[in-house]
C-alpha cells in the first residue's frame, strides 16, 4: 500500500581511506563502508561523533561521489565555530573510523533514468550533492542536457573547479556557469553578483521544457532561488530544495 522502507537505518563504522583538500575550507573524506548499499545521487549520510564523556554530536553530510564510484566520498565545509566540521577537516586522518548511517533521503535525489533537462543551482558547498548528480551522469554516459549555476564567494573557493571544467569540456550537454559574489580574478568574464531572477532567466530552460531543478545552498539562497523559479513559471513539484542552515557544523 505504501512505499515501505523496511530496513532500519543502522549506525555502522566507516574507515577513512583518504582526506583530500578541495579548497582552503573544504576537504573530501574518502570512506570505506563495509556493507554499503548503493546510494542515489543527491542523498546524504548522518555522521555521529562521540566524545570521551559520552556526549554525541550528529550532523548530515551530502554524498559527493557517484553511486558507481568504488568509494563513498563526502565533502565537508569547515565552519569555524562548528562542533563537528573542524574535527572532520582538521583532525581526521586516513585509518580513523567514523560512525555513519545512510544513505538517507529520496526527495533530493536524481537518477539518470528520471529524464528531464537538469537545472542545478548551488551556493558554496551546496554544490556537493549536485556534484554527485554530475558524476553519476558522467559515469553512466548520460547526455541529458544539464546546466549548473554555481555561486561562490571567490574563484579560489570554487569546489571541484578543475573537475567541472574537464567534464564540461568533453561533454557538450553539460554547461557550468559560475558567479563570483565577493572577489573576482582579473579579467573575469562571468557573472559577478548573487543569483537573481535575471540570471536564472538567462541560465535556465523555459518552463515549457519541464526542467527538473535541484537547488542547494545556504537557506537564503535556496529560498530566493526556489521562489524565483516558481514565479518564472516552473512547476513547484519540479523545484527541489535542500538548505544548509546554521546547523552548528
Amino acid at each position: 500500500m505504501v512505499a515501505v522502507q523496511p530496513r532500519r537505518l543502522l549506525w555502522r563504522l566507516a574507515e577513512v581511506v583518504d582526506v583530500v583538500p578541495e579548497t582552503s575550507r573544504t576537504k573530501s573524506l574518502v570512506l570505506e563502508v563495509p556493507g554499503w548499499e548503493r546510494h542515489k545521487a543527491g542523498q546524504h549520510v548522518d555522521l555521529r561523533l562521540t566524545a570521551e564523556d559520552g556526549y554525541q554530536a550528529q550532523r548530515s553530510y551530502s554524498i559527493a561521489s557517484a553511486p558507481e564510484d568504488e568509494r563513498l566520498v563526502l565533502t565537508v565545509d569547515r565552519l569555524d565555530d562548528g562542533e563537528v566540521s573542524p574535527y572532520l577537516t582538521d583532525v581526521l586522518m586516513a585509518g580513523d573510523k567514523l560512525e555513519l548511517r545512510g544513505p538517507i533521503g529520496g526527495y533530493f535525489a536524481w537518477e539518470a533514468k528520471d529524464g528531464c533537462p537538469l537545472l542545478l543551482v548551488a551556493g558554496g558547498s551546496g554544490v556537493v550533492p549536485l556534484m554527485a548528480m554530475i558524476r553519476h551522469r558522467a559515469a553512466v554516459g548520460s547526455d541529458m542536457p544539464t546546466r549548473l549555476l554555481y555561486s561562490s564567494r571567490s574563484f579560489e573557493e570554487i569546489i571541484y573547479r578543475e573537475e567541472l571544467e574537464t567534464l564540461a569540456a568533453r561533454d557538450g550537454s553539460l554547461e557550468v556557469i559560475h558567479t563570483l559574489t565577493r572577489s573576482r580574478p582579473k579579467g573575469w568574464g562571468g557573472y559577478d553578483r548573487r543569483i537573481d531572477a535575471g540570471m536564472l532567466e538567462e541560465v535556465s530552460w523555459s518552463p515549457d521544457e519541464s526542467p527538473l531543478a535541484f537547488v542547494c545552498g545556504p537557506t537564503p539562497l535556496v529560498e530566493s532561488v526556489g521562489t524565483t523559479l516558481v514565479s518564472l513559471g516552473h512547476d513547484p513539484a519540479h523545484v527541489k530544495t535542500e538548505r544548509f542552515g546554521a546547523t552548528g557544523g
Partner: peptide, 23 residues
C-alpha cells in the same frame, strides 16, 4: 535551536517512521 532542512532530518525521523519521509 538549529535550523535544518527536511532532508537533513530524514535520518532522525526515520528512527520512528518506517516510510521514506522526505518524499
Amino acid at each position: 535551536e538549529h535550523r535544518l532542512d527536511g532532508n537533513a532530518a530524514a535520518g532522525s525521523l526515520g528512527e520512528v517512521f518506517s516510510f521514506e519521509v522526505t518524499t
